[in-house]
Design a protein around this nucleic acid. Sequence first.
DNA 1: TTGTACGCGTTATCAT
DNA 2: ATGATAACGCGTACAA
Lengths: 345, 345
Amino acid sequence: MAQRDLGNRSVSVKDVATEAGVSLGTVSNVLNRPDRVSAATRERVVAAMTRLGFVRNESARQLRAGSSRTLAYVLLDHGNPFFTDVSEGIDLAAEQAGLTLVLCNSRQLGHRERAHLEMLEQRRVQGILITPVDPDSPTLLEVAERGTPVVIVDRTPTTPLLCSVAVDDVHGGRLAVEHLIDRGHTRVAFIGGPARIGQVRDRWRGAELAWQQAGLDPADLVRIDTESLTAADGNEAGARLVGIPSARRPTAAFCANDLVALGLLQHAVGTGVKVPDDLAIVGYDDIDYAAVSAVPLTSVRQPRQELGRTAASLIVEEAHDPMHTHRQVQFEPELVARASTLGIH
Amino acid sequence: MAQRDLGNRSVSVKDVATEAGVSLGTVSNVLNRPDRVSAATRERVVAAMTRLGFVRNESARQLRAGSSRTLAYVLLDHGNPFFTDVSEGIDLAAEQAGLTLVLCNSRQLGHRERAHLEMLEQRRVQGILITPVDPDSPTLLEVAERGTPVVIVDRTPTTPLLCSVAVDDVHGGRLAVEHLIDRGHTRVAFIGGPARIGQVRDRWRGAELAWQQAGLDPADLVRIDTESLTAADGNEAGARLVGIPSARRPTAAFCANDLVALGLLQHAVGTGVKVPDDLAIVGYDDIDYAAVSAVPLTSVRQPRQELGRTAASLIVEEAHDPMHTHRQVQFEPELVARASTLGIH
DNA sequence: TTGTACGCGTTATCAT
DNA sequence: ATGATAACGCGTACAA
């Protein structure tokens, strides 16, 4: 039942060797090549280990080995269920590759992101997956240049100097609006912002493309800008939408994400606007709460787990294959139609 | 622009020393006691570092130092927004203490939990915060005995051999039902399960206590059991609730968590049951989505961030103070009243 | 500023 | 099969 001394030094292989009455080399063999040790002594050594509470020192091992057996994912905001699923995908792939995943939360703060990157480099992790604050930040390239593989997740850098996996948001926007057009809508609102965010821009572009292709009047695709992408913004956008004279009011809204859509839905339910009869709603992301809201939400789903899995395999490939060349992988999103555009049948 | 060799060995302090034309000790001083180095040589050394792409090797540093500057939080399910907020609290406290936080997701699997614990012990992290699969698992004690401080988060072990922080769920259940009684309800349903979960049991007990204390008929506090605590379960419970003859049907429901409450709310909205007029609803956890649902949800809020912050300080205390004695900290929850019990005013 | 012992697990060598 | 021993990896601290 003894363990780490009061003196705070932890139990080393030497201590184990002494306790078991064997040499240091034998202890090492028990740990790394148990087959080379007779069953009897192996048991003696293992017993000594548990008796002393021996815990391998990963630092010492790594110092020799050169690199660790862990991957890291630095995410923007782990309160966002989207990233939760992405990291689950990473986790599954990592587990298969015999690697452990640790998560770091940048909370959208550049300085925290940098601090985490520095820490992970110093730890010599096998690779860093990251959804960065800024996908074009030079810091990411520098980390990669210094030797730690980096893969960008859910963002596409403008220059392809790193691996990245992302989803085609232009196509997603197109799917959403095509669906609304199919349902007979000829006046549609796009709700989201700010416009400088790549995601918002792309989804809007997709909406425009679908609109043009259907030959509809560009004036009937109304854009309602929001400050950010929260439910509060969506709720407030609902008020603005209702303010439009009914002759010109959109009969459907495509929201840049599900939170905005949920806020809009809340406003509609609260003011007696019928969904989808008076107003059809499409969200984006298909978070879990989209399916359990007052009116189940039609949404554009991204292959979140697969995003993560793919990112993880790219990292593993990059870490092992010296001939690796960087790739930009893009997935296609998928529309999930629910009552908020279909009604109850 | 040179960096890590093709040979894969990373740049060491020695390389930097050679490049800068100084001794190894000086490089170390630049890193750890920059004031002891003249400005001129310091600059030369720093220049050499960036030129070579030097990254401190944390393993080597730690090997000397004995322990690392990181905390770990092993959580049950990082898809659950509750844990997200808890870990944000931990993160804030860790940042203040100059520690980095890494998160590990056990996904409720004992074997993953054990693997993570082992990995973290081997890394000699400063401390492990954990919401365990089983708060009475001997593994946790063993880890603590071997020298890594462990604090249990959001669970209370039956024997107080470790520090823990949790929330008083009995009191939470009482608050919920007292609120409903105050609003004039005399027939109430408790929806949740399975009963063996500590959390569910305590919340139910609190409900019973409030009921008794008000002198109401025990038969009018109806228990509706669910298989788990998902929105689907809540939705289905709604169907069962409606099945009760209207003379005896509860006019209010207290759900064991917010997901269940959201599912119930969805069922109500879908079937034209007016909330709160026909059915008042109280949830538990006060997740963000509780406030933005069709009818904003009254819920019992736990001090999630504070839970995390406190857990982190307990760990820090334990790591530094050899005279530390284990403590069980319990927080009080708070009722947040919204439209689902109050109506719109 | 410099030189060097130190921390600890891994691996290899030679001997038993 | 096991023992004894040393070299290695790299940053840190301290005496010189």
